[in-house]
Design a protein around this nucleic acid. Structure first.
Lengths: 220, 220
DNA sequence: GTTTGTTGTTCAGCTTGCTGTCAGGTTGGT
DNA sequence: ACCAACCTGACAGCAAGCTGAACAACAAAC
């Protein structure tokens, strides 16, 4: 698991970093909020461990920004014993979990494992189905070795399907992600985009489930 | 949210129950493990709040059983201040979260909200009956390892039965969920779909209750 | 302003396979 | 044994979905 660890205390930070490394995860230890922002723009982390008592800005702001931007990466926050309100505020801001300092390192391990277990069900940013490789983060699609050029709408449909990989997605759900709320549309637009996707990705890539919707990446 | 609350202390239990009720959730407050087991067999809870210091059996065993049975309902465990190992063991047994007693009621609220948010994003109404695994959210059915492909009507019938798992569902009720209100139908359509389901899921999957209706997932 | 190219939307005719119905057989209760 | 309830294979019809093509909307280049 690739983890972003934001903590200004050098002693505690060192200990936690070593422990997480020993667990077999990869850690980027960042000491300031603005650097964390930079790292988040660059790397797709699978988990963020965030100290709320940072010197150069409230860690909660970073969390809020993330969530507002639609980033759903799991976040565990760390607070001091007496900062109950901050903890509650953190959970309300979209944190997945918290630790009370000083915390036991094995408790940290258990928490990491719990989050990992939870997010194992969440689709990865990069997915391979047959000869097609899709990178949700970079918005690229490869068919074998050559990259495919998708239009905005085609990508929107594909992304919706990939995000629910294996599930049968109702046509109306796809429609909702194409058009902003309320923009009812009376046409077979979804069918047309599916048709175009099939032309580019291969006919067998998308399966039609009559009367319900579409499905991709199901185990044969 | 429908919550199962397992706690033997009457004073604490009363306070927590009232608080959760005030938040607009529905609570079943159970004081013993075996009663909790019974409740879990009967009702599909959306969250379980589990005290680990119960008199008649270790709460952790109940949690382990649940997870072993493939039940992924979110579980929050409550432990006393000094029971760190139990907390860790709980998380490793599949708990989603924990509270340290004595806990702030508003912290509990925040936790409930966090779990609700999480499970809203990842709807996992998945049910296992014999060799058949049904995922209501994804509209997929597995028989052992291979996925089954159901048609829209077949799925509608199955979903109706699963939603009332264990109960006997009247034929007319199934008919109602197949056809929009008023669309009177003069045929044995439901029987036909049950027959088709049995062919795909296995004959013993749906039990006929003569003169009344159908039933699935009943104890052998 | 015009041209050129790209993307989004609608439509119509075609294809596909689900659906409802029926008939004849089977089962279970009394 | 009787009757009603239920099961299931077969099949025609039709609604759902597919796709080529035309057109509209928009942007970029000249």
């Amino acid at each position: 698991m690739r983890i972003l660890f934001v903590e200004d205390d050098r002693v505690l930070g060192q200990a936690v970093r070593d422990h997480i490394l020993a667990e077999g995860h990869s850690v980027d230890w960042i000491k300031r909020i603005d650097e964390a922002r930079l790292a988040l723009d660059t790397v797709a982390y699978e988990l963020i461990l965030l100290d709320l008592g940072l010197p150069d800005g409230r860690g909660l702001d970073l969390l809020s920004e993330l969530r507002k931007a639609g980033n759903s990466v799991p976040v565990i926050i760390a607070t001091a014993q007496d900062q109950i309100e901050m903890r509650i505020e953190g959970l309300n801001s979209g944190a997945d979990d918290y630790l009370v300092k000083p915390f036991d390192l094995f408790e940290l391990s258990a928490r990491l494992a719990a989050v990992a277990r939870r997010s194992a069900a969440i689709p990865l940013p990069s997915i391979q189905i047959g000869a097609i490789a899709i990178d949700l983060g970079r918005k690229t699609v490869l068919r074998g070795d050559n990259s495919l050029q998708l239009t905005a709408r085609e990508w929107a449909v594909l992304e919706k399907l990939v995000r629910h990989q294996g599930a049968i997605v109702a046509k109306s759900d796809i429609e909702d992600s194409l058009y902003e709320f309320g923009a009812e549309i009376e046409s077979n637009a979804v069918e047309v985009y599916v048709s175009r996707l099939r032309k580019k990705l291969g006919a067998e890539f998308v399966r039609t489930v009559r009367g319900i919707g579409y499905q991709i990446g199901e185990p044969a």
